[in-house]
Design a protein around this nucleic acid. Structure first.
Lengths: 364, 364
DNA sequence: TTTAGCACTCTCCGCTCGAGAGTGCTAGCG
DNA sequence: CGCTAGCACTCTCGAGCGGAGAGTGCTAAA
C-alpha cells in the first residue's frame, strides 16, 4: 500500500507541542482515517474550511454530522486538524497533510491518459536538452497546478570531449568546451600576450588531443606546469569545467501564474516574497541540501522546512538522472494546501521521464 | 533638448476621441507644462491622484491652488489629464505620459554613480554570455524598479565555425555546432543507419572543414546532394543553424516581485494575466514586430500597444548589438504609471553596454 | 489674471446589526 | 456503548448607514 522508498523524516518536525502525535499515528480508527482523507481532499479542492455538514453531504458516509464532529474533535486532539475560528470548520495541520501523504493517499499514479499526453509532447519537441528542460517545467506546472522548478542536469565529474579556441581581439579569446555528456560551455579569456587565430588553432588542436577525457582536477594539475598562453587556457578550462558542476546551474521555473490563483496568496505580501524567492534563485540552494538524502520523491510540508521563508509552503522534489553520474533536480512548490497526491505523482513521472532521456544522452 | 533619435509615432494612437490633442501639443504654456510635469512625477512616485493643494504645497509654485485648478482643467481639456472621480485629484492619461516623455523629461541620464556600479558588476562577473544576459536582466529590473526582459542576442546569418558528432547509441547521435559568434548549440539526431564513434569522428572532421564559414542556407543546399549519414547530419545542421536565428530565442526576465508592489496590480486578476504573459514567452513575439522600426529606445504607453493585453502597460524597449549583425532585445515592462525617465535611461544605458560587449565578442 | 470663499460631490472608514454557518454539549435512543 | 437529535453559543461576513475629509468647480472680488 505504501511505497517504502520515500522517507518521511517525521523526526524532523520541530519540537511538536503535542507529544502524543508521533505515537498515535497508528491508532486512528478506520473511520477517522477516512474522515481525515476526505477533509484533506475537500479542503485542498475548495480552499474552504470543511464543516461536518458538508462532509456528510458530499460523501455519503452513513453517519450523522454529530458523529463526524466527534471524530473531528478527536483528530484535532491528535494534532491532525486545526480550528481557524470557533465556528469555521476544520483545516488540516501540517501534520495532517503529512499523515495524508504517508498513509492515506495510496500509491496514486498520474492517469495514463495524461502520461501519454506528456510523453507525446516530449516526442514532438526537438531532440534538445534545453527544450526538454523547458517542456518538463511547463508540463510539471500544468500537471500539478502549481509553480514548478527544473534544474539543468549537471554531471558529477564531467570529462572533456573537445576544445575550441577563438580569437576575438588580439588579447581576448573565446574558449568553447564540450563535455562527454554533450554539454557545451563558452568562456571568454584575456590572454597574457597577443594571440591571433593562427596561434590559437594549433594550440586548440594540441590541447584537444591532450585533454580529452580529463576532469577539471586533471586539467588543473596540468595547468601548474604550463606557461604563457597554454597556462592561461588551462586555467580557464579547469575553472570552467569546474563551473559546470557548481552552483551556476540554471533553473527553469514555470507556472508562476498559478501562484496568484491560490487563496493563500491573495494578500500580496506573501506572494511577493515567493516571487522574489523564485526569481532570486536562492530557492534551489535552500532546498538542495535536503536532497542529498537519496533518490525518490521527497516531500516537505510547511513547518518541516528548515528555511523560514518556506514555512508556509509545500515542496515536492525529486532528483533525476543516471545513477550517481548526471544529476538534476525538479519539483513543485505551492502553498501547504496543495494536492500532494497529484504533485507527487507528477513529479515522480516527469523525473522518471527525464532520467530515461538522460540515460539516452549519456555517451556510450 | 529632445533626442531626435526616438520615434514617437503619435499617429499610432488608436482613434483618439479628442481631435484637438495632436494639434495643441505645442500650445501649452510654460506653466502648464511645468504643472503637467509635476503631476506626472508626483503621481508616478506616490500612485495617488494629485490634488491642486498637494501640488502647491510640495513644489512651491508661487500661485494658489485655485489657479492650479484652472490650469488642471485646461490640461484635462487637452486630454493630458483625467478624472477618476469628481473629487479625486487628477491623473495623467496615456497622452499625458506621452507628452511627458516627448517634451518634459529632458534628456535624463542615469546618475553616473549608478552607471559605475553597473559597469563594475559587469566587470566582476565571469566572461560569459549567459551571465551577461542574466546580469543585464537583474540590473535593469533594479534600476527601473520594474520587470525586465532581456533576450539573448541572435546573429542574423550565423556561420559555422565547428562541428562535433557524438555517438550516444547505435542509432542516436549528438550534433554540437559552434557558430562564428561563439554560440554553441546541441541537437540530437536519429541516424538512418547504425553509426558508432569510429564512423562519426572522421565524418565530423570532414564536415567541419567543408562547412566552415557557411550559413544555414549554404548547408541546406549541400544537404540536397548528400546521402546516408552525411545527408542526415547536413539536414540537422541546417535546421539547427536556422534555429539559432528563429523564435526559439530564450528570454530572461527578472524583477517579477516588483509587479505586486504596484498599486495597479493589487487586484490579482491583472497581475496574473501579466505573469502568464511573461511566463508564456508570448510577450516578446507581441512586441518584437514593433521593434523593426529602428534602433534606439522605443516607448509604448498603454493604448498605444496593439495587443489588447498590453493596453494597461507601459513598455520601454531597445534593441542592442552590432549593426545589423547580432541583435537582441531588452526592455522594461510595468504599469502605465511608471518612471519613464528612469526606465528609458536605464534601458538605453544597458543596451549600450550590451552592444559594447557584443562588439567585443564578435569574431575577427 | 489671480485668488478667496463656498457649496457640492464623492470616497473612505468605522459602526452596527442581523443572517448564516458551525461547533460543543447534553440528553435520549437503540 | 455508540450514535443522533436538538439546542444554545460563538464567530464571521456582508449590507446598510452616516459622518469626516478631500477635492473640485464656480462665482465674485481684488
Amino acid at each position: 500500500m505504501l511505497n517504502s522508498r520515500w522517507e518521511y523524516d517525521v523526526s524532523e518536525t520541530p519540537g511538536s507541542s503535542n507529544p502524543s502525535s508521533a505515537q498515535t499515528e497508528a491508532s486512528l480508527s478506520d473511520r477517522q482515517r477516512m474522515i481525515l482523507r476526505l477533509i484533506v481532499r475537500d479542503y485542498v479542492a475548495t480552499g474552504r474550511p470543511v464543516s461536518s455538514k458538508t462532509l456528510v453531504e458530499n460523501s455519503g458516509i452513513g453517519v450523522s454530522s454529530a458523529t463526524i464532529r466527534n471524530e473531528m474533535a478527536a483528530l484535532e486532539e491528535f494534532g491532525y486538524l486545526g480550528h481557524l475560528h470557533t465556528s469555521g470548520g476544520r483545516v488540516p495541520t501540517d501534520q495532517g497533510y503529512r499523515y495524508f501523504v504517508a498513509h492515506l493517499m495510496g500509491d496514486f499514479e498520474l492517469p495514463s491518459s495524461e502520461q501519454l499526453t506528456i510523453l507525446h509532447q516530449f516526442r514532438q519537441v526537438e531532440l534538445q536538452l534545453e527544450q526538454w528542460i523547458e517542456l518538463a517545467a511547463a508540463t510539471l506546472a500544468r500537471a500539478a497546478g502549481n509553480v514548478s522548478l527544473v534544474s539543468a542536469p549537471i554531471a558529477q565529474s564531467p570529462r572533456l570531449r573537445h576544445i575550441e579556441l577563438v580569437s576575438l581581439q588580439p588579447r581576448l579569446g573565446l574558449i568553447i568546451l564540450v563535455t562527454n555528456e554533450g554539454a557545451a560551455r563558452q568562456v571568454m579569456v584575456h590572454w597574457p600576450e597577443d594571440a591571433d587565430q593562427d596561434v590559437l588553432s594549433p594550440l586548440a588542436d594540441s590541447l584537444a588531443s591532450q585533454l580529452r577525457g580529463l576532469t577539471a582536477d586533471d586539467v588543473a594539475s596540468r595547468a601548474a606546469s604550463g606557461t604563457g598562453l597554454a597556462r592561461a587556457a588551462l586555467d580557464q578550462i579547469a575553472t570552467a569545467l569546474h563551473g559546470v558542476t557548481a552552483e551556476g546551474t540554471a533553473v527553469r521555473h514555470s507556472g508562476l501564474e498559478h501562484v496568484l490563483n491560490q487563496r493563500e496568496f491573495t494578500d500580496t505580501a506573501e506572494a511577493q516574497e515567493l516571487l522574489a524567492l523564485l526569481g532570486g534563485g536562492s530557492f534551489v540552494s535552500a532546498m538542495l541540501p535536503r536532497l542529498e538524502e537519496g533518490p525518490g520523491v521527497q516531500v516537505f510540508i510547511g513547518q518541516e522546512n528548515s528555511a523560514d521563508e518556506l514555512r508556509r509552503l509545500g515542496i515536492v522534489v525529486s532528483s533525476y538522472g543516471v545513477d550517481g553520474e548526471i544529476i538534476g533536480v525538479l519539483g513543485v512548490v505551492g502553498p501547504t494546501r496543495m494536492a500532494y497526491d497529484r504533485s507527487i505523482s507528477s513529479v515522480r513521472y516527469v523525473a522518471r521521464l527525464m532520467s530515461d532521456l538522460m540515460s539516452d544522452l549519456r555517451a556510450g
